[in-house]
Structure formats: C-alpha cells, structure tokens
C-alpha cells in the first residue's frame, strides 16, 4: 500500500492548481523515492514534470510501486476543500480503485475524508535528456508572470532573447509591438527580485505565450523561477516545490515547451 502525509496541504493544492488547466489526466507514479508525474498537454507541445521527494513528506510509506491515474481538475476540486493550515494524507491500496485524501487541521479537531476515483490512463511517456543548458535565468516568478501577461496583450508568440546584459522578451502582433528587457542585477534590496543570468552564448527562441501563461500558474509555489534555454531545444521553466527561494526544494515542478520555428 501507499500512504503519505504532507504537512501543508496547501503545497499540494498549489501544485495541482498549477497544472490542471494544462493537463487533464495524468499518472502519478509512486515509488520509494517519492511521487512523480510526467504528462503532456493534449497537443504534445508542452510537458509537465513534477517530482516530490520523500523528504518533503512528514510520513511516506510505499511498499510497492503504484500508478495513480488521476483526473487533475477533479483532484483540484477536492484539494480546495482543505483549510490553509491543514495537513493532507494520501492513501491507496496496491490495486485500489480510489485515492483516499484526508485533511486534518493543525490541532486535529477537524478531519475531512474524501475519495477520488482513479482512472486507467494510457499516457505516452517521453525520455527527457539530462542536459546542460546554454542559458539559465533566475528571476522573480511574479515578474515573469507579469511579463507573460503583458506580452499576451500584443500577440501570441514571444521571443525570449538572452545576453550577458539581460533577458529581453519581445512580441509583435496586429496592433503593434513591444518588448521588455530585464537587466542582470547584482545588488538589489530584495533578493527575490534579483535577475541572475548564467550563460555561454547569447540565445534567442520563440514560444507560444498561451503555454507560458499556463506555466506561470505555478508562481504561488515559489517566489523564484528558473528559465533554461539552449538553441533549438525546448525551454524549461522550473519552480521549486516545498523549498525557499533559490535553495533546492525537496521537489520541483518543471514545464517544457517546444519552440516555434520559421516555416
């Protein structure tokens, strides 16, 4: 059987909220190392990779690997029933048809029990190469969300260009064009707002803003986001889960998006 308790149900709620609009159904693979989910959107343009290590959990027991086929919007509906400071326990039998979800308030005076029906999901799995990226930009996740939202006003495709000086987001559409440049900042009052760029060579790629917009729904998870790019490969937009700022969390939520190219 599988049983795991997370001290903050809100963390799981934020994770599922962040992906439920991009991916409807997904298999959460549970093993002794933790919980993992890999799923593509219906057009196979973007991919979500969620890793929750056992360290994140107050209690984690997995006797045998289990695949939990989950309808994410429905899971999100149940997670919304948790209180802000509730803990959450997930339980499933080896061949069970349901996922049990139990919320407990801090003083344990309120216990809510739910069951979510599991599904058989025939999902395609992709091998993501473990590669080093040419460019890694770390910035405020709220700022990234704002830029993506602002770019969407003008068009559907955003160019992201990076040099040592800064990262430039550009868009053009029927009503005109715009661009926003963020300069690399070494000393800022607020650490969370710093922009740091590690790069080998300048890179510029084009991406569909619709998908970048979906990714930014993960902003409440972490004040910082890491954007990784290399020429002609998918961009990675990554958030730590259950960690603080730039420090490695015990989990991560990464989004991959295939670039747009000249036809």
């Amino acid at each position: 059987m599988f049983e795991a308790t997370l001290q903050k149900a809100s963390t799981l709620k934020k994770v599922i909220e962040a992906i439920k609009d991009l991916v409807t159904d997904g298999n959460i693979e549970v093993s002794e190392t933790g919980m993992n989910l890999q799923a593509m959107d219906s057009s196979h343009v973007s991919l979500v990779s969620l890793v929750l290590h056992t360290d994140m959990f107050e209690h984690f027991r997995c006797d045998r690997n289990v695949t939990l086929g989950i309808n994410l919007p429905n899971f999100a509906k149940i997670l919304k029933c948790s209180g802000n400071d509730d803990s959450v326990t997930l339980k499933a039998q080896d061949d069970g048809e349901n996922l049990a979800i139990v919320f407990e308030s801090e003083g344990q005076e309120r216990v809510s029990e739910f069951e979510l029906k599991l599904m058989d999901i025939d999902a395609e799995s992709l091998g993501i190469p473990d590669q080093d990226y040419n460019t890694n930009v770390k910035m405020s996740s709220a700022e990234f969300q704002r830029i993506v939202r602002d770019m969407t006003v003008l068009g559907d495709t955003c160019s992201i260009g990076c040099t040592k000086e800064g990262v430039k987001f550009s868009v053009s559409g029927d009503l005109g064009q715009g661009n926003i440049t963020l300069r690399q900042t070494n000393s800022v009052d607020k650490e969370e707002e710093a922009v740091t760029i590690e790069m080998d060579e300048p890179v510029e790629l084009n991406f569909a803003l619709r998908y970048l917009g979906f990714f930014t729904k993960a902003s409440p998870l972490c004040p910082r986001v890491t954007i990784s790019m290399s020429p002609d490969v998918p961009i990675v937009v990554a958030y730590n889960v259950g960690g603080e700022k730039d420090t490695e969390g015990a989990g991560s939520l990464s989004f991959y998006l295939a670039p747009k190219i000249d036809e």
């Binding site: 992709l126 091998g127 295939a258 670039p259």
Partner: peptide, 14 residues
C-alpha cells in the same frame, strides 16, 4: 510566420 514544433521531435518516446 512561426510554426509550432512538437515535443516528440526533441524527446524520444520511452
């Protein structure tokens, strides 16, 4: 005009 590529052209199926 920019065309959208698919992830399967970058990542192999497992």
């Amino acid at each position: 005009k920019k065309g959208q590529t698919s992830l399967s052209s970058f990542f192999a199926k497992k």
